[in-house]
Amino acid sequence: MVDKERLEAYWKKNLALIRNILIIWFIFGYVLAIIFVEPLNNIKLGGTPLGFWFAHQGSIYVFVALIFIYAKLIGKIDKEFDVEED
């Protein structure tokens, strides 16, 4: 039973992490780049409107970072709950 609880706790923690990362993914992929692009375009980054910059470049950098952040954090959780591969 203890083992089962440990695994359940691991899965819960994993799902929470996935949810949090996907929220950030959604913010950069959709909220900043599509939904609120006009107001953001009033802010200029150099000569580039910010909303346009996220849509054409910035969000892609965030996507890359998110995968590595997830891989690192879930690796730690794997260790914590002893479900790591040998």
Partner: peptide, 12 residues
């Protein structure tokens, strides 16, 4: 941007 975001964000 649909292509730029769509064809990269899927990897997440």
């Amino acid at each position: 941007a649909v292509f730029l975001l769509g064809w990269t964000g899927g990897y997440v």
